[in-house]
Design a protein around this nucleic acid. Structure first.
Lengths: 160, 160
DNA sequence: GTGACCATGCAACTTTGTTGCATTGCCCGG
DNA sequence: CCGGGCAATGCAACAAAGTTGCATGGTCAC
């Protein structure tokens, strides 16, 4: 009951055609367990709780994951990009809910009909290869906290 | 017929409640004439063709513009954020078309019904304050160039 | 064994801003 | 007219998020 998640992510790597190494497994595991989109710095912190990891190596692993379609990289509205494991969402692009208070970025399930490009008219000035949607707001947890402690709380990055 | 655009942007500043200074007018003029969303570095280059400008001052002017609702700041998928004048689009948020070849970011007209949040289900896990949509693809100009010169052109940042 | 390749690490660098502090010009009350 | 204060600007140093170049150590094919 302790290494079975490791086996699961090993299978993910294999399916994506990525050779498994201890560090790649750890990174994939962290992403898989997070359930939210993480910034590279967050991933670094979490992996390092279990094993040393150089940031360059992390960036290279993330590049590889994105390349092979295992992970998705997207802009979070903040400076750092975020990464999430595609597996949870059938490797399909999905949109993200970004809480402006705590900084957490949730991956939302893929939804057909979320973006209606035809609303822009019939002659879009470019050949579309991808669409990124980010929804900014205040998450339920932060809203509850705000109600409890008065409406002027402004803590950033409680938990990523 | 040469300073009338300057008068126009002066009126924009006034309407946004921003005191006009020579540099602010120049920055607003550059943004207004660009018609596309520009990165800070691009704005710096363009303003400097006419006048010295420190980058710190530019960032402060941009912050002010965004604060007052005159300009919009959004993430471009690349590292740098982009800025565009809200005026062209009735100061309403709009979405952006980002060409992956030349790096240009077009502002698309505001379209009702572009994003259908209800597609995500009735219980969105956060109180929405804003939605950012970016459409990635290849613009008409780059597509034409690719057709003319063979399909493997890959120039980045021809003109912003 | 030997050469080649791959994953990893370290240090230095780049890009995109940000912060702290100094300077300058302008207005306002006296 | 004078002095204080404030707003706009500049300079230098800093900071975050990556990126690049090069070294090292392990593994595999021959």
């Amino acid at each position: 009951m302790d290494d079975s998640p490791t086996n699961a992510v090993a299978a993910l790597l294999a399916r994506a055609g990525i050779e498994a190494t201890p560090l790649r497994l750890l990174v994939a595991e962290v992403l898989d367990q997070a359930g939210v989109a993480l910034a590279a710095a967050d991933i670094l912190t979490r992996v390092r709780r279990r094993h040393d990891l150089n940031k360059v190596t992390l960036y290279r692993i993330l590049d590889l994951f994105v390349d092979k379609g295992l992970a998705l990289r997207h802009s979070s509205g903040e400076r750092a990009k975020r990464y999430c494991l595609g597996s949870r969402f059938a490797s399909k692009p999905h949109c993200h809910a970004h809480c402006l208070r705590c900084g957490r970025t949730l991956c939302l399930p893929v939804a057909e009909g979320l973006v209606n490009l035809e609303a822009l008219g019939p002659d879009l000035p470019l050949a579309v290869t991808g669409v990124e949607v980010r929804i900014d707001g205040v998450c339920a947890a932060c809203a509850a906290k705000a109600r409890a402690k008065g409406p002027s709380v402004d803590a950033k990055r409680g938990k990523p």
